[in-house]
Design a protein around this nucleic acid. Structure first.
Lengths: 120, 120
DNA sequence: AGCTGCTATTTAGTAACGCTAAACAGCATT
DNA sequence: AATGCTGTTTAGCGTTACTAAATAGCAGCT
């Protein structure tokens, strides 16, 4: 994908998406990146480490997720398993509420656009 | 509104919203700000001049809108009336297509979240 | 003339986010 | 020891929206 609008549209929603992902199960950075890309890359393009990890640090800094360091697995080094805090759950719920109001509001403009196009 | 997510969610979509507004009719900065706020302030918060005018310059610079300077009206100074160019119409159409794919993609995460919450 | 108020535009400086591009590290297999 | 996979970290960049102001024309009033 090389759509130039992606990057701006994504702003803010990536945080929400990561919170959603982590709410599904305890998981770690690399797995988050892999699953995120499976589910969104065709629309949002590939998310790289340099995008995802800083968001995780931000979320942890804000107290929305907490981290458990697991010992080194079969292959590869140790992982940091993230899960939502109570504050994270509450914040995610708020974000989703706002997202729904927000998209409803924007869609109103688009509906008018479509209506106008249809009557041409 | 003092919702801290607004600012990030807005990124990118404000451009699309302004293009939608201008596609509805030829209009000028001050009127855009007024109408935008009537239709979105309750959700997005108030958009100020410092937000809207730079976007208009950007859109003009990109060749998406064109400008016609009208003589001073009854009261107030002269206005700059904006309308979409052909490129602007094409771009708006693209942006809307992408917006729809994008929100569909994000909503998938939210749907899963809602489903998980419901079965608790 | 001067004042207020409304319309209308402009701009300097700031913070936040996602991106590019790379580096670093542990372990397994060859 | 070399390669490859898993996994994390970070520096520097460009874009966007925000705050906060300044500038300016015209109308009506005293």
């Amino acid at each position: 994908m090389d759509n130039k609008y992606i990057q701006q549209f994504k702003k803010g929603s990536l945080e929400m998406i990561l919170l959603c992902l982590i709410s599904e199960r305890e998981t770690y950075g690399y797995e988050i990146i892999t699953e995120l890309n499976e589910r969104t890359a065709s629309v949002l393009g590939y998310a790289k480490e340099g995008t995802v990890y800083p968001i995780l640090y931000r979320l942890q800094e804000a107290g929305l997720i907490k981290c458990r360091i697991a010992p080194a697995a079969a292959n590869g080094g140790s992982k940091k398993f993230y899960s939502l805090t109570d504050k994270g759950r509450a914040t995610l719920s708020e974000m989703i509420d706002f997202w729904e109001k927000y998209t409803f509001c924007v869609n109103d403009f688009i509906d008018r656009y479509h209506t106008a196009e249809d009557t041409k």
